[in-house]
Nucleic acid binder design. Structure first.
Lengths: 215, 215
DNA sequence: CCCCATCAGTACCGTACGGTACGGTTCGTG
DNA sequence: CACGAACCGTACCGTACGGTACTGATGGGG
C-alpha cells in the first residue's frame, strides 16, 4: 500500500483510479439498463472485465459499491455557476428558464432516475445512507445554483422574498410538480420531455408573478 | 367454484374474501415495517397464518400479490367529495388548505410511502404495471377531488384559469415541492410533518395569488 | 355419518446471489 | 532475471427466496 506512490486518479481527491472509475461506469450502465436486480456483483465483474475479488477489495461490499456509484456520478456533474453578469428583467427570466429546463433534463436523465430508484428502494432499511447521499450531493448542488441566481435577482431589485429556501421551494414545485415521481414510477419519459421547454417557461412566469418585485 | 354461492367479500366487487383481505393487511404491515426485502411469500404466510399454497392459489404469484396489495389499499381510501356547499372567498381558501394538508398527510403516510417505494423499485423492469396502478388509483382519485374543488371555485367566479390540469399541477407543486421525494428517500418524516399546516397555508396563498380572480 | 373441498403447516427443489478462496497471468521494480 | 504485487477468471460455499407437492385437519352439505 505505502509503496504505491503515484496512484493515478480520475478526479482530484476522489481516491479512485481510472480503472475503478471505468468499473463504476459499467455498473451505472448495468443499473440503467436493467434496474437494481440486474446489478449483481458477478454482473458488474463480467461487464467491467474485472474480478469479483477486486470489487470487494476496492469497495468493501455491495453497499460500498452502490455508494461509490452515487459519489462517482455526482462527481461528474458539474453545475456551472454563471453568477457573473448583470441582470435585468429579461436576462433574469432567461436564466430562470434555462435553470428550469436544466433541472427537468437532469431529473429525467437515465442515470438520475436509476440512482433515485435505487436509493428509494434502499431507503426502507435503516442505516442506508444512500438517500441522504443522493439528497446531499444532488439537490444541494443544484440548489446552490438556484440560490445564487435568486439572490442575484434580489440584489438587482428584480425579485422580492424573505426566505430564500421558500422561494426556491416554490420555483422547484412549479417546475417539477409531480413529473419527477411520475417518471420514477415508469411513465414514458419521452412524451413528457417534449413539453419541458413550454413547462419551464410557464413555471418561471408563475414564479415571477409570485416573487417578482413590483415596479 | 360454481358451488360457492355467497362468497363473503370485504368490498363490493373487489372479489376478495375477508380472509384474503386480512392476509393483504398483514402483507402491507410487513411491507411498511421492513420494506420490500421483508415481504417474502414465506413471511406473509407466517404473519397471516396461512399457507404459501393458498397465497399462490389466491394471487397467482408474487407480482399478483403486490398488485392485490395496491388495489386493496386503494379500495380502502375513500375521498369524500364535498362539492356541495356554496363558496365564497374565505370558504374556498379553507377548502384548499384542507385539501393541501390532506394531500401532505396522505403522501407522508407509512403505507403510501411503502407502496410508492415498492412500485418505484419495480418500475425498472418493463411490463410492471404497479407504477401505473398506483398512479391511476392514487393520483387520479385525489386529483378528481382537487379538480372538482377548482372547478367549483371557477364557477363561483373566485378562480380564473384556462387549463384545469395546469392549475392543479401548480397547486400540487406549490404544496408538495420536493417533500414527497425527500420522504421517499428516507428523510425523517416526523420533522417535516410539524410544518404541514403552515406549509399548506403558504402554498394556498401563493396559488390564490396566481389563480385568484381579480375583483 | 360420510364425502369432499379448503386450507394450514411443512418439507422440498431449483436457482440465484453475496461473499471467499485459489490458480494462473501480467507487469513494474530491484 | 527473479521477485512480488495486483488482478483476472473461475470455482466454490452458504443462504435465502420463489414456487410446488404432500399430509393432515377442519368443516359444511348431502
Amino acid at each position: 500500500m505505502q509503496s504505491v506512490r503515484a496512484m493515478k486518479e480520475t478526479d482530484a481527491g476522489s481516491g479512485l483510479t481510472e480503472r475503478q472509475g471505468a468499473v463504476l461506469e459499467q455498473a451505472l450502465r448495468l443499473l440503467v439498463d436493467g434496474g437494481e436486480k440486474a446489478l449483481t456483483t458477478a454482473g458488474v465483474a463480467r461487464a467491467a472485465n474485472c474480478s469479483k475479488e477486486s470489487l470487494y477489495k476496492w469497495f468493501g461490499d455491495r453497499e460500498g459499491l452502490l455508494s461509490a456509484m452515487i459519489a462517482f456520478q455526482a462527481s461528474k456533474v458539474r453545475t456551472l455557476d454563471v453568477a457573473g453578469a448583470k441582470l435585468d428583467g429579461g436576462s433574469l427570466r432567461v436564466h430562470l428558464v434555462t435553470f428550469a429546463r436544466d433541472l427537468l433534463d437532469v431529473l429525467a436523465g437515465d442515470v438520475s432516475l436509476a440512482l433515485n430508484r435505487l436509493a428509494i428502494g434502499q431507503a426502507s432499511r435503516e442505516g442506508s445512507k444512500l438517500g441522504h447521499m443522493l439528497q446531499e450531493r444532488g439537490r444541494r448542488q443544484i440548489g446552490r445554483r438556484a440560490g445564487a441566481l435568486l439572490e442575484a435577482g434580489r440584489k438587482a431589485g428584480l425579485l422580492a422574498f424573505d426566505d430564500s429556501d421558500e422561494a426556491y421551494g416554490a420555483l422547484y414545485g412549479l417546475v417539477v410538480s409531480d413529473w419527477h415521481l411520475r417518471m420514477l414510477l415508469g411513465e414514458e419519459p419521452g412524451r413528457l420531455k417534449k413539453d419541458f421547454s413550454r413547462r419551464a417557461e410557464r413555471a418561471v412566469d408563475a414564479f415571477l408573478t409570485l416573487y417578482g418585485a413590483k415596479e
